[in-house]
Design a protein around this nucleic acid. Structure first.
Length: 721
RNA sequence: GCGCUCUUAGCUCAGUUGGUUAGAGCGUACGCUUCACACGCGUAAGGUCGGAGGUUCGAAUCCUCCAGAGCGCACCA
């Protein structure tokens, strides 16, 4: 028996070495797998972590699930491709680098200029990516590094530009002046999904535009009222019916306004006074109502810096200051009727925290409700159909309902961003002329200044990673992918967009199954976050307890889509389990052989015919477990499979079988002893194989010393049947 | 407002889509330096499965209602 078994299992002395051997073997790459397997492909695209920093425990969970599936399928003889990558995460990355530069050098991006800022970001991203790659390795991920992709590299850029052009040619991408979510802090538009609503106390003011204006209006934003063009009331509201269609003029806080009374069923007669002052340029619903009644749309009174643009006493004031001025003016004029404290949901930008200012802007959009020529479907339908028909299954299933509900309410997707880092909008202008796709050869063209929403490129991840738009062998072989493992928070951002892009570009699904992971929380149930100071770096945990322990902790009993609490005690428990396996190995290796003149002979078999009834029972039990675990893995019940194996190894194999074998092994009945030795080897070998996807390091390390070893690595050993 | 989920032992959670005395980990109590392992071994305490009805031979599991917790989307003019 190798001497290492005389000491407790030491993950830190083992894992790095084993990973290096695996990587060197080339077996992470499906092209290098040994002959003899059926070579049917099994593909997972790794969700590319943001290149903004380091991985957290949520990533560790996702990577573990994926690695379990990949290792399991590899052992089953599949040509397993797990393709790793990182995401440039446009806004997140740029704002992070900008923050750092501003802190260290006191400079803004405008001080540096576009080229210099991009250089700085590239340097930051290069470093960040190498950290992330290191972390992925430490966790034991058996992904194919030779195919590693980045969402902003040349291949992916070509995919994005091609996709943009195809969608533009199909009439699905248009440029329009529409009301968008403007983030004054980040100085960019953001999509509806990047908005976070924060509940804040606010004041609801009830007032009239002027003394002779017949209807009182309620608003939380008096400063926007200088941009009002109409008042909307519910058509059935008896109080106001006689005014519908009438028009009024007033001078509101130095600003002349013209107000028409319109009737629209969108208005809730029970809220406020039952009458809405319409500010089409600075409110989404007002914009929609104004559109329905052919009212003026684009009278902006607030600019990109959230400052007032009207002349008079409000000119150049910040909206918050302007609000006070207007309220004071209303009070002095005797127009303010009531002030009420309310709770209000304020739209803020996810990344910057800035309060969203709706503004009309000339932007690029993806139209989701337009029927596509030759396909007889809208993008919305393309997103819905595969999920409704079951060609894409979600785990847990109830997320399918959430998904469908969201898509049904989907609006056009604003894809242009006023930031510099990312795929630049592939459109060139020269006077009235416009070229989409690739840069024109002749002189005098200017490229659109904007970049694309980062999810536009992420949406093509399952096929851009395989070389699309070229018709590559990889694309042919590995797409559609089998399963996508991601946090449920990304169901709309990413899953929906991948389905959209893939259906549009390839007329097929991106993946057959979506496995949603929950959020990993600390022992108190709080989310891990830097501001709370409870951050748990997977690397620290691996150093302390080993990757196998970290992986088991994240997986056992952790059902898909459910949040999980993590504590050191839990991880410690699975570190002990790794050591338990180590000790079982010590016992088995020491007792399951005969030694003559220093030479060991291992029993062969076991021969089923010669087993005692009890041994036969034990083997049958193990067969049942094997089938059970296999079925669980096939049906993505990883949490159960892990639990069962833990239980079997510790409380069945160690506690019962090893114990009851002791008298036989030390007894004098030679045939009984040989039979038992063979059985122990078989059962333990089986356990190692079944556990390998979950705890790859300790099982591989033991396997290397097992007399039952029949392949170079346990990683490519045969999955038991 | 629309939609979704959860409520099981002190704590954190399973319970494989109705089937024998409801499970695990941690914790607790007691006892063990037993020659694989103290990163261990053994034993024990602890649950009317949120509540009320219903379907069924049979319900933690399916249906209805109620109570509490959480989440998503939309919106609050």
């Amino acid at each position: 028996m190798p001497e290492k078994f005389l000491k407790p299992f030491d993950p830190s002395a083992t894992e790095g070495r084993i990973y290096a051997e695996w990587e060197k073997s080339g077996y992470f790459n499906p092209d290098n797998l040994p002959e003899g397997s059926n070579k049917q492909p099994f593909t997972i695209m790794m969700p590319p972590p943001n290149a903004t920093g380091v991985l957290h425990m949520g990533h560790a969970l996702g990577l573990t699930i994926q690695d379990i599936l990949i290792r399991y399928k590899r052992m089953c003889g599949f040509a397993t491709l797990w393709l790793p990558g990182t995401d440039h995460a446009a806004i997140a990355t740029q704002s992070k680098v900008e923050k750092e530069i501003s802190k260290k050098e006191g400079k803004s991006r405008h001080d540096l200029g576009r080229d210099e800022l991009l250089k700085r970001i590239d340097a930051f991203v290069a470093e960040s990516r190498s950290t992330i790659e290191k972390q992925i390795r430490v966790l034991g991920a058996s992904c194919d590094w030779s195919r590693e992709a980045f969402t902003l590299d040349d291949t992916r850029n070509r995919a994005v530009n091609t996709l943009f052009k195809h969608m533009y040619d199909a009439g699905l991408i248009y440029r329009g002046n529409r009301i968008v979510n403007w983030d004054p802090k980040g100085q960019t538009t953001i999509s509806d999904d990047e908005i976070v609503y924060e509940e804040r106390p606010a004041k609801l003011y009830t007032f009239r535009y002027s003394k002779d204006f017949p209807i009182p209006i309620a608003t939380t934003r008096p400063e926007t009222k200088v941009g009002d063009v109409a008042v909307a009331v519910h058509p059935d509201d008896a109080r106001y019916q006689s005014y519908v269609g009438k028009e009024f003029d007033a001078v509101f806080c130095d600003v002349p306004i013209h107000i028409k009374i319109v009737a629209d069923k969108e208005v809730d007669p029970a809220f406020g006074t039952g009458a809405v002052g319409l500010t089409p340029a600075h409110s989404h619903i007002d914009w929609d109502i104004a559109e329905r009644h052919a009212l003026t749309h684009e009278v902006m009174v607030i600019n990109e810096y959230a400052k007032m643009t009207v002349s008079g006493c409000l000119e150049g004031k910040k909206t918050t200051d302007a609000r006070e001025i207007v309220v004071e003016w209303l009070t002095n004029e005797g127009l303010l009727e009531k002030t009420k404290d309310i709770q209000q949901n304020v739209a803020t930008a996810e990344r910057t925290g800035g309060v969203i200012e709706p503004l009309p802007k000339l932007q690029w959009f993806v139209e989701v409700n337009k029927e596509i020529l030759g396909r007889n479907k809208t993008l919305k339908e393309m997103m819905l159909d595969p999920v409704r028909s079951g060609s894409i299954a979600m785990m847990p299933e109830h997320f399918e309902k959430t998904y469908v509900h969201w898509i049904e309410n989907l609006r056009d997707w604003c894809i242009s961003r006023q930031i510099w880092y990312g795929h630049r909008v592939p459109v060139w202008y020269k006077g009235e002329e416009i070229v989409v796709g690739a840069a024109p050869a002749d002189e005098g063209w200017t490229q659109d200044e904007d970049t694309l929403d980062t999810w536009f490129s992420s949406g093509s991840w399952t096929f851009s990673t395989l070389g699309w738009p070229d018709n590559t062998a990889d694309l042919e072989r590995f797409h559609p992918t089998d399963v996508l493992v991601t946090a449920y928070e990304l169901i709309f951002f990413w899953i929906a967009r991948m389905i959209l892009m893939t259906e549009f570009a390839l007329n097929t699904i991106p993946f057959r199954t979506v496995y949603f992971t929950g959020i990993i929380r600390d022992a108190k149930g709080q989310k891990f976050s830097k501001s709370l100071g409870n951050g748990a770096d997977p690397i620290d945990i691996v150093e302390k307890f080993g990757a196998d322990a970290a992986r088991m902790t994240l997986v056992v009993g952790n059902t898909p889509g459910t949040d999980m609490r993590l504590s050191d005690d839990k991880i410690k428990g699975y570190k002990h389990f790794a050591n338990k396996l180590w000790n079982i190995a010590r016992f088995v290796l020491a007792n399951a052989n005969e030694e003559k003149n220093g030479n060991k002979t291992w029993p062969s078999g076991p021969e089923r015919d010669h087993l005692s009834p009890r041994e036969h029972e034990l083997l049958t039990e193990c067969d049942a477990l094997t089938q059970d675990v296999t079925k669980d893995l096939e049906e993505y019940r990883i949490y159960l499979a892990a639990d069962k194996l833990y239980h079997y190894a510790w409380h069945e194999l160690a506690d019962k079988i090893l114990e009851e074998s002791k008298p036989i092994l030390s007894g004098s009945d030679a045939p009984a002893k040989a039979s038992r030795q063979a059985l122990l080897l078989t059962l333990f070998d089986r356990t190692l194989r079944l556990l390998h996807p979950f705890m790859p390091f300790v099982t591989e390390e033991i396997y290397q010393s097992m007399p039952t070893r029949d392949s170079e690595f346990l990683m490519i050993a045969k999955w038991p049947e």
